[in-house]
């Protein structure tokens, strides 16, 4: 395998915790490669070991076995300061910091590069400004930290990581405090940073659909305590994503890249229509407990929907029409027979 453009490589890595001479393995046999400028999302269920893996990669926690290579040098060979010049982290813990301005937070990123007093040169100031611009946070530079929203703080913390000028950026659930548009913006920001600045970005996240749409590579923690690597599409096609996350109550929709509740009572409905109204009608019927099928013959009722949202529901012994989706929902609820 060609490794000339690889930044990070793990060799038979085993991670976990050591407690009173006993070791508790969380993930083992990890053999992964991260290339320069690659945007990687680390996916896995709650408690699957995402944070532990990131902390181990950052050198903040000792691996149980195996080796991590950064530029083909063992991570152990780096001093704290050398590591800090190459690896920046964004953690889940909330900053509890007193009187500081936005710019002060970003300036922390220059610490590994400055002298004992932490005095910044004009070059350092320029890099801080550059980092603020890259994350779109110049307007936060002079504001007091404790007056900022969680999303604004998160931007500054990422700007701080950028100002560190790392080769590798590790983020642990960076979107945890953000709203829906903020999450997408963040993912796009990280992808752009990876591609433009050639920083390898590895982000642990729960935003399945966003990461499947934005990342170059997915590292997926499987149910067998391994990490599977591949492009988002390959992992969808091989049903790996579905297997890693689905359980008896949910199933993964490969095309929509989201999870939906599993239908269990198998009462079938056929929907006829086009475009958005068709999709919405389908969603109404699915959430009321119906299984949408593609042939009218095996279905109990048939629903046809027009482009203006009016619908007609027909069955063997009845017919009903309506103007909007809430009417459709109440009919669908009335008609479904719940198993006892």
């Amino acid at each position: 395998m060609q490794t000339s453009d690889s930044l990070l490589r793990t060799n038979s890595l085993k991670i976990g915790y050591r407690y009173r001479r006993k070791s508790h393995t969380i993930l083992s046999n990890i053999n992964l490669i991260a290339k320069n400028g690659e945007f990687i999302c680390l996916l896995g269920r709650n408690g699957s070991g995402k944070s532990t893996f990131l902390r181990t990669l950052a050198g903040m926690q000792k691996e149980l076995e195996g080796t991590i290579y950064l530029n083909e040098n063992s991570l152990k060979a780096f001093s704290n300061r050398e590591k800090a010049k190459r690896i920046a982290v964004v953690l889940t813990e909330r900053l509890q910091i007193g009187a500081m301005r936005g710019r002060d937070i970003v300036e922390f990123g220059r610490y590994p590069h400055t002298g004992w007093l932490g005095k910044l040169t004009p070059v350092d100031h320029k890099k801080v400004q550059h980092a603020l611009e890259d994350v779109g946070a110049t307007h936060l530079a002079n504001r007091e930290i404790n007056q900022l929203s969680d999303g604004e703080r998160q931007r500054l913390i990422i700007a701080r990581a950028l100002a560190q000028e790392p080769e590798l950026m590790l983020l642990d659930e960076p979107s945890a405090f953000l709203d829906a548009p903020g999450r997408i913006e963040l993912a796009i920001l990280l992808r752009n940073l990876a591609h433009k600045r050639k920083i390898t970005v590895i982000a642990a996240t729960h935003d399945l659909d966003i990461s499947l749409r934005t990342s170059d590579t997915i590292w997926l923690i499987t149910e067998h305590q391994r990490i599977e690597s591949g492009s988002p599409e390959d992992l969808i096609a091989s049903n790996s994503i579905s297997k890693a996350f689905s359980d008896e109550k949910t199933e993964f929709d490969n095309l929509k890249r989201t999870f939906k509740p599993k239908q269990t009572n198998h009462q079938k409905v056929y929907v006829e229509g086009e475009g958005e109204p068709f999709e919405l009608a389908q969603s109404v019927l699915e959430r009321t407990g119906w299984e949408v099928v593609f042939s009218p013959h095996e279905s109990k009722i048939q629903v046809s929907i027009k482009s203006d949202g009016t619908w007609r529901a027909t069955a063997a012994d009845f017919e009903e029409i309506g103007k909007n989706f809430s009417e459709l929902a109440s009919i669908a609820q009335k008609l479904i027979v719940h198993e006892t």
């Binding site: 950052a58 903040m60 001093s79 704290n80 300061r81 050398e82 590591k83 800090a84 010049k85 690896i87 920046a88 982290v89 953690l91 813990e93 900053l95 509890q96 910091i97 007193g98 500081m100 937070i105 922390f108 990123g109 610490y111 590994p112 400055t114 004992w116 007093l117 932490g118 560190q164």
Partner: peptide
């Protein structure tokens, strides 16, 4: 006076201070 800079980094929390290269 000799630990002004690392003390500042400690304001971010121990993990962040560690990630900035502070022992």
């Amino acid at each position: 006076g000799s630990i002004l800079k690392p003390l500042n980094a400690l304001l971010l929390g121990e993990d962040y201070a560690k990630s900035l290269g502070i022992n």
